[in-house]
Amino acid sequence: MKFNAVYAVFIAGVILLGCNQSGGSESGGENAGKKLVIGATMLSMQNEFIVNVSDEMESRAKALDVELITVDAERSALKQVEQVESFIAQGVDAIIMNPCEVEASSPAVKLAMNAKIPIINVNSETSAKPTAFVGSDDTESARIAMKYIAEKLGGKGNVLIMHGFMGQAAQLKRDAGAKEVLKANPGLKLLAEQSGEWDRAKAMSLTENWIQSYGNQINAIFAHNDEMGMGAVKALEAAGLKNKVIVISVDAIPDALQAVKKGTLDATIYQNAAQQGGTAIETAIKAAKKEAFKKEVLIPFQLVTKENVGEFLKQ
């Protein structure tokens, strides 16, 4: 009988201890100690700048002990919406989206907001308002580029504009910024404008067509990104026209920086991929944890020429 009584007391103590331990876990929340999971859908992993943003996101997520699931939208807004739907179904803690298009990617924002999952747009915008936006003012990048062209041409000359993927925020805003400066400089004439879809090979082909149409009339080309700028440079070099045509583009990817150093690309506009990617992750984590965060983070662009390219090559 004494043995049974002692045993009963022992069992009761174990049960009580177990309850106390369970209660301690509950007081820290149901997901205490659980890794945060962030889903990220990127415009295109064939674009070097976007890859740079994604790489920094991966690095920052690892440093902050967060699980990051990254998928490639392959420039399809429809695919991007489906990817966000999948993230919602998986029950991720936050979503980062690098939008394919301003309008067509907007349903993804609405889906996430309705599901009460924070969604952070990085690098590019949507008409639907997300939880937060991390990027740069694309209008400003085009202003910097076109002012550079105006200065180099003394306010007079023929300009070609190579657009990015039509309907994407960067394309729309860089177009607006460029047209603003053109309007303020009536001596600059817009010969033609067309999309090179952010792609180097397509940009090279487009420039070859422009050379056939306009030849020596071309004084400058503003390409909405470096991939296209590099394609334009290659076509101009093959035609023996590079020394006569100013080319400026946006992003300051490694290839472009080397080209500026060599003097084949006249200038590029530095867009901070690392800061955009890292800040997007930090913002997503804060939003998921319901901590204070900035609703909009705008990172300044910088003009890169042969004179200051060394500063950026060191980064």
Rank of each mutant, 00 (worst) to 15 (best):
G135Y: 01
A145D: 02
A150H: 10
G135C: 07
G135A: 09
S141T: 08
V134I: 07
I149Q: 08
A145N: 01
N121T: 13
K156E: 13
V134H: 02
S136K: 02
A145S: 15
I149G: 13
V159L: 13
N123S: 08
K147T: 15
I119T: 05
H163S: 13
I144E: 01
K129L: 15
G164Q: 03
G157A: 08
H163Y: 11
H163A: 13
E151S: 15
V159D: 06
G154K: 10
T131W: 00
T139D: 08
N158F: 08
R143D: 03
S124T: 07
L160Q: 14
T139N: 15
S127I: 08
N121A: 14
S136Q: 00
G135V: 05
T131E: 00
L153C: 14
A150S: 13
G155D: 14
G157C: 14
I119P: 02
A132K: 02
R143G: 03
A128K: 06
T139P: 12
V159K: 03
T139E: 08
G157S: 10
F133V: 08
S124E: 03
N123I: 02
G154E: 15
R143W: 03
I161M: 09
I144R: 01
N158W: 04
G157D: 12
G164T: 04
L153W: 10
K116N: 14
D137A: 01
V134Y: 00
K156A: 15
A132Q: 05
I120C: 06
N158G: 14
N121Y: 04
